[in-house]
């Protein structure tokens, strides 16, 4: 599956989320910025996809639009077959409860709740029963068994981010969106979080989309998409830090030649 085949792709059981001719324009007239310029992309079910690109390339905007956190100027976003881009606030809330999980760069937890309460928060909000077995499995996987009663302030940055990961997974969403999840972490904590995200894909069959600018973080993914100036310009599968760095430097050179 490549970007060239997208136009003909119908609802495909191997695709968990997709964008069609997605445009996002900020400003008007001479100050117009095309944050996303006719982007079409599919994210595969049960795969870990990374989105990379230089600052201002539109990688965060793409993720926000995919996740229904931001509105689109034109085009269509589908998550698990549902058209996100045309949803009302109420439908979006429902979508977030049932289909999506989020991990942010920082300030990921509610400070007044314990780690356990934070993890079950999406289920509590949606008034759904907590699947204890799955909960334990997730908690064990992130290694938080003995930290559940702690408040976020009593946890390290890595532990907080692992709580956030657990929270994103516990409601068994169709897809987890992670926005620079390791941006605020040291290398050890980063490794823990990324390893966990990868294993959630490999072991639990979760689909994960992650935005990052760190080649090492991106190398944990199955596939890396490269954005520049609001367009998808390149993708590689089964990446390594080196192969990613090579592509990045090519992109930088290409950009230099263009100007």
């Amino acid at each position: 599956m490549t970007t060239a085949q997208l136009d003909t792709a119908q609802v495909d059981s191997s695709v968990i989320a997709s964008a069609r001719n997605l445009k996002k324009v900020y400003g008007r007239g001479s100050t117009t910025v095309h944050a996303l310029d006719d982007v079409s992309v599919d994210f595969e079910r049960g795969k870990f996809t990374a989105i990379m690109g230089p600052s201002g390339s539109g990688k965060s905007t793409l993720m926000h639009c995919m996740a229904g956190l931001d509105t689109v100027t034109s085009g269509e976003v589908l998550v698990n077959g549902e058209a996100v881009s045309s949803m009302s606030q109420r439908q979006l809330t429902k979508l977030r409860r049932t289909q999506l999980g989020f991990i942010f760069q920082s300030f990921n937890l509610v400070p007044t709740l314990s780690a356990e309460e934070n993890i079950t928060l999406p289920l509590d909000i949606a008034r759904q029963r907590v699947d204890r077995e799955f909960f334990n499995k997730v908690v064990q996987a992130v290694g938080l068994d003995n930290r559940l009663r702690h408040r976020p302030a009593e946890l390290s940055g890595g532990q907080q981010q692992r709580v956030a990961c657990a929270r994103a997974l516990v409601s068994k969403p169709s897809v987890v969106f992670a926005d620079e999840p390791t941006g605020n972490l040291d290398s050890t904590s980063s490794r823990e979080v990324l390893t966990f995200l990868r294993s959630s894909v490999d072991d639990l069959g979760q689909s994960v989309v992650m935005v990052t600018h760190d080649p090492v973080a991106a190398s944990y993914a199955h596939r890396v998409l490269f954005l520049a100036d609001g367009k998808i310009v390149k993708e590689i599968t089964e990446p390594t830090p080196d192969s990613i760095l090579t592509v990045l430097s090519q992109l930088t050179n290409a950009a230099g030649e263009k100007h």
């Binding site: 809330t93 429902k94 977030r96 300030f107 990921n108 909000i125």
Partner: peptide, 16 residues
């Protein structure tokens, strides 16, 4: 603000 945003992102409705 951010905490509220976070909770909205994980599915907190307006009524809630």
């Amino acid at each position: 603000t951010r905490e509220i945003g976070l909770m909205r992102a994980v599915g907190l409705g307006k009524g809630q």
